[in-house]
Write a protein that binds this DNA or RNA. Structure first.
Lengths: 211, 211
DNA sequence: GGCTGATCATACAGACCTGTTTGTTTAGAG
DNA sequence: CTCTAAACAAACAGGTCTGTATGATCAGCC
């Protein structure tokens, strides 16, 4: 009779995913963000309506508009949250490894493969957002650039720690390999493209013994 | 002078873009397809309405629905046309080159950079479509897979001609580099990512002297 | 001229979208 | 228990979307 919680308890359970399962008891704001992230990234930003989001979140539309001014701002919040959560998970995994910077650079692709193998994997939200909003919405481009800047900074720091004489170029190359692995794995639904990219990274790092 | 290469460079034409400028006198069907391609890829598939397409095409909505059953089928037709036109241009440019297969594999990234530098560059329509329709619409995934299969077959043929002992893996690596260059160039609006990817390809091809 | 088929222009139907309004229900603090 | 703030439910307003229906216009061909 309550009808309140029926829609909330659908994606619980222990998860091996990179993302923590969203608790049923989470705040409405968190439930809305989680549902919006799921739907935006699977069905598309424009194709996902706020009604579908609140339905999946088990929330009321008034609640959504109390926490977010508009759908556009909800998209911004989702991207920021997804980016932060992903970076926490990604750099956390990498930081927990033993080994030197070169080993960490190669381990990037092992962590990517774990990500790709998640049955919920839907690609990089920023790549997807840029693909959908090529023109217009410059704020989305800025959010994507900020995310990429975090990644780039980390990659460059690893290259510097390796003693790389051209850390910027090395970081750019790693960005190309990471983006390429993401897109290829997403398109073909084949996580092993992470290993393909790792092979290239390995050759690249071996080819420069000054690293 | 050289009548041999003339037949292969037929696609370049007087326009500086990879795509022929669509003549105003083209058939309504062609105008609709061109306008739809432009709008779909710049504004997004879901965000582009048929009214905007016919307005830009200078056509009537009835004409659009006489040629295409639905917007969904129009998307299919646009993807097929875009893919065919791009492959004609891309492989045409590469086929016109002198040099062996290894040189052609490296030239891939020079041609990509020309593409990226087009002010109308909006990324790969198939990557963008997959990003927007992650779930649902399996026909779009099939169209993207067919396009990628063409590219993969060409890359593998070049690798075979090089005497590569693992042409499949080499072609996969090139796919990763191409996809990564496309996405990085699109996201940062920086065509030079083609050269970044070329550097990796070069190292990869040099690292295997058996090629 | 008169016929034909394609295209154009406009209005429309029904569904869906974003965002708001109104009022009810719930949960926690004093 | 009372008070309060948040969340819920449902209807609504105004706009936009896909796709259709209805004619008008135009080009070519007899």
């Amino acid at each position: 009779m309550s009808g309140l919680s029926e829609a909330r308890s659908e994606q619980t359970g222990p998860t091996q995913s990179w993302r923590q399962a969203t608790s049923d008891a989470a705040s409405p704001r968190e439930r809305i963000l989680a549902a919006a992230a799921h739907l935006f990234c699977h069905e598309g930003f424009a194709a996902t309506g706020v009604d579908a989001i609140v339905a999946q979140a088990g929330a009321a539309k008034t609640t959504l508009y109390k926490h977010f001014e508009s759908k556009e701002q909800l998209i911004d919040a989702v991207l920021e949250r997804e980016g932060a959560a992903w970076r926490r998970w990604f750099f956390g995994k990498l930081g927990a490894l033993r080994g030197d910077a070169r080993a960490r650079l190669l381990a990037v692709f092992d962590v990517l493969e774990i990500w790709f193998a998640d049955p919920e994997f839907y690609g990089c939200p920023f790549i997807n957002a840029i693909a959908e909003f090529d023109t217009g919405d410059e704020r989305i481009r800025a959010a994507a650039a900020a995310h990429k800047a975090h990644l780039f900074a980390w990659l460059k720091a690893q290259a510097l720690e390796c003693g790389d004489s051209a850390p910027d170029e090395t970081a750019r190359q790693m960005v190309v390999l990471i983006d390429g692995a993401i897109v290829a794995a997403q398109g073909a639904r084949d996580p092993s493209f992470a290993r393909t990219a790792k092979g290239l990274a390995s050759i690249r790092l071996e080819a420069r013994p000054d690293l």
